[in-house]
């Protein structure tokens, strides 16, 4: 399917190798609703949302790094048998 012929809603997006970047808008949306429910006042709402989004992404990146070290660093050291 050519990108030029893509019909939104009817056809799914052809995602390349950067599909995982969609975690950013996903976390942003979750952070907005979380802050909308939890924040006692709407003062400095957007900075709070951005901070929460950054926190979620930071923790996810740390977990990804940890899994990377385990899979590519620790597991190959185990005996094969």
């Amino acid at each position: 399917m050519s990108g030029l012929a893509w019909i939104p809603l009817l056809e799914p997006v052809q995602m390349g190798r950067l599909w995982w970047l969609l975690i950013v808008p996903l976390c942003f949306g979750i952070a907005i609703v979380y802050r909308a429910v939890k924040a006692p006042s709407m003062d400095r709402f957007l900075p709070g949302v951005l901070r929460l989004t950054a926190n979620i992404l930071g923790v996810m990146a740390l977990l990804a790094a940890l899994v990377f070290v385990v899979v590519y660093g620790a597991l190959p050291l185990l005996p094969a048998d």
Binding site: L9, V13, F28, R35, A36
Partner: peptide, 18 residues
């Protein structure tokens, strides 16, 4: 804000997956 987030996420899902 909540409306924009929920409808935005839902619409994004439809755009991504059809």
């Amino acid at each position: 804000w909540a409306m924009a987030a929920v409808l935005g996420l839902f619409a994004s899902g439809l755009v991504i997956g059809g």
